[in-house]
Structure formats: C-alpha cells, structure tokens
C-alpha cells in the first residue's frame, strides 16, 4: 500500500494540479492506460465540486485528495468540508439533466452556465463503477476505485490451482 495526500486551497486554478498529480500517481501505480482519461475526468469533477462546496460555505479550508494503491486497486478519495446536502447524484438521469439545462431559460448570475447541482458527481457515477460517497457530519468524502492491471490479468487468466 502506498499513499499520497495532497491538500490544496479551494481555488479553481488548483483543480488542474490535482488532475496532473492524479495522472502521475495512476501511471506509477500501473493503472491501465485506457482508464487514465477516466481518472482525469473523475478527479476534475470531484475536485471542482469540492472547491465549489467550500466556496458556497465561505470556507478557505483546504480540499484533501488521497491517492493509494494496493495489490488490486487504485483508489482516489476527495474530501471537502460540509455534509452532503447538495448532491442528488446517485439518482440523477444525466441525459434528462442535460436536456433540462438546455431548455431552462436565463442564467444564474452567481454561476452562469453551470449544469444542475450534482451533475459533476453524476458524471463520475456514470464513469466509475466503484464510487462511494459518505458524510460524517463534518466532511464529505467521495471515494473512487479502479482495478489495477495485475488484478485484471488475474481475472482474465485464472491461475491453475
């Protein structure tokens, strides 16, 4: 098990840094090349969401991203302050939400052109099979897990007993 923790001020400029770190660590963990774009997108969505939650609460506490890998899995956890009140992600129909975003008139001056709340997390749930969102009353954690190449190889070619 190796673990890396990144803490960054809740600024949108740092979301790209989070993506770059995640990509580098995922490569080092030998995550399948085809999953790297998925990791990049998932980190972008979860970190953007965390930064937005901090901003909406006026919090300048850092956002935490933890990356770890064990023999079978590569895991990324993004932690923000606050309980989960804003995310109907698990039940959101992305296609329906996109269509609604298009037909709704008028811009919200506070967040012009934003997709509906929870949309980013819903994108992640559409991408990542192992997604766990938990809240302990003070913080919210979004944990995403991908199988590592070694684990995939074991599935494809079960070793003879």
């Amino acid at each position: 098990m190796s673990q890396i923790e990144v803490r960054f001020a809740p600024l949108t400029a740092h979301v790209r840094t989070a993506r770059l770190v995640a990509l580098a660590v995922a490569r080092r963990a030998r995550l399948d090349e085809e999953l790297l774009d998925e990791v990049r997108l998932a980190v972008s969505e979860t970190c953007s969401r965390a930064v937005a939650v901090h901003a909406s609460r006026g919090s300048d506490e850092p956002v935490t991203m933890r990356l770890s890998d064990d023999h079978d899995h590569f895991t990324i956890e993004v932690v923000n302050v606050g309980t989960l009140v804003d995310d109907p992600a698990q039940s959101m129909d992305l296609v329906e939400a996109s269509t609604r975003a298009l037909s709704e008139a008028g811009d919200d001056p506070a967040s012009p052109d934003a997709m509906p709340p929870g949309f980013g997390l819903a994108v992640v749930s559409g991408l990542v099979e192992d997604l766990f969102v938990t809240s302990d009353g003070q913080t919210t954690s979004v944990r995403m897990r991908w199988p590592l190449v070694a684990a995939l190889a074991n599935l494809a070619e079960p070793t003879a007993s």
Partner: peptide
C-alpha cells in the same frame, strides 16, 4: 485535450 462538465455547461450556455 481535456473537457469536463463545467466545459459542457459553457457549450450548452452558448447553444442556448
């Protein structure tokens, strides 16, 4: 080389 849902929102806004 990268686009996430925030970018989608801007394109949807442009289309509107």
């Amino acid at each position: 080389d990268f686009l996430d849902s925030t970018g989608l929102g801007v394109l949807v806004g442009g289309l509107k």
